[in-house]
Amino acid sequence: MNALKSIPVLVEAPATRDFCYQNTLPLLHEISHALRRLQQEQLPTTIDLNAIPFGPGDEQRLLEFLGRGEVSAHLEALGNSSVWESGYPGIWFIEHRNESGERVAFQMEITTLPAILATHPDDIAESLSSLQKALENPSLGHRIGD
C-alpha cells in the first residue's frame, strides 16, 4: 500500500520556471503579438484566461512571469473585482469574483485602459443630474440610483 500512498493525488506545480511542456509559453507569445498590434494599430485584445487549458501551476507561473506594475484598481459591483496592470505596461489582468468570493471570470486585456474602469457616458449624464439635484437639496446624499 506504500505505493498507493506515493501517488500524488494533486500533481504539484514544478518549482522551475520551465514553460516548455505547458501552455504558458505559447500564451506569452500570443500576448507579445497582441502588444505589437496595440502599439502599431491601436487594437486592443482580450484573452479569456478561463478558456486556456492551464496545467497545475501554469497560471501562477504566468502571473509571476508578468509581475505587477504600478496600477491596481478595486471594483465593487456584484462582488469584488480586481484590476491591475502587469509589470509590462499595457498588459492588464481583470479578475471578477462573485458575492461569495468565487472567481467568475479571469481575463487579460492588452489595452491602454480596461473598459470596465472607464465611466459610461450614461452614468456621467445620470451623475450630472444627480449632482445637480444634490446641490439643490444637499440632504439627498451622494449616491446614484438610491
Binding site: L78, H96, Q107, D123
Partner: peptide
C-alpha cells in the same frame, strides 16, 4: 445592479 456590474455579469456569462 450598476452598469459596471452588468458588464461584469456579461463578461462572466460569455466566459
Amino acid at each position: 445592479v450598476t452598469r459596471r456590474g452588468f458588464l461584469k455579469f456579461c463578461t462572466a456569462t460569455a466566459s
